[in-house]
């Protein structure tokens, strides 16, 4: 199988890999680069556990070919905490007891981050809309919605 070179930035670090043509970004991140924070819950774009942010846009890494990410800026949950300090979303998920098994959590946090980057003060409806591509089987969603709303409020207070 032909291998193609791919270079991108992952959470601020330069990465360069030769990957098989047709490899998904999810596989490239997990198997080649060792960032296992995106999870493979369905490999068919229906669960959201693999969500990452590519050039500021929320993407499903299981449906994104790695070779299309050449030159991209890719962000995952593994890179969210800076200098050991949790991002407000991470803090809010902890405080709201919004994780149970935790498997959906990295994808949920990425979906929420994409929302807050674009809409710092979202309504509940906007949070619901933003999370609607992410499946959670444990929590019943409400704690996650509350965590995102709390993080948004914390962020806007910090900005004020």
């Amino acid at each position: 199988m032909a291998k193609v070179p791919v270079q991108f930035t992952l959470n601020g670090s330069e990465k360069a890999e030769f990957i098989e043509s047709g490899t998904t970004l999810l596989h490239a991140l997990r198997d080649k680069i060792g960032d296992t924070s995106p999870k493979g819950g369905c490999h068919q774009g229906t669960c959201g556990a693999c969500s990452v942010i590519i050039d500021g846009e929320l993407r499903l890494s299981c449906l994104t070919l790695a070779e299309t990410c050449d030159g991209a800026d890719i962000r995952t949950t593994a890179g969210l905490a800076e200098g050991g300090v949790l991002h407000p979303l991470q803090r809010a998920f902890l405080d709201a007891f919004a994780t149970q098994c935790g498997f959906c959590t990295p994808g949920m946090i990425m979906a929420a981050k994409a929302l807050l980057d674009r809409t710092p003060n979202p309504s509940r409806e906007e949070v619901v809309e933003a999370l609607s591509g992410n499946i959670c089987r444990c929590t019943g969603y409400e704690p996650i919605i509350q965590a995102v709303l709390t993080a948004a409020r914390a962020d806007s207070q910090n900005a004020a």
Partner: peptide, 14 residues
């Protein structure tokens, strides 16, 4: 929960 920090940072190993 002692396991939640691992969940929110993507570090929990499944």
């Amino acid at each position: 929960r002692l396991d939640s920090p691992g969940h929110v940072t993507g570090k929990t190993a499944y």
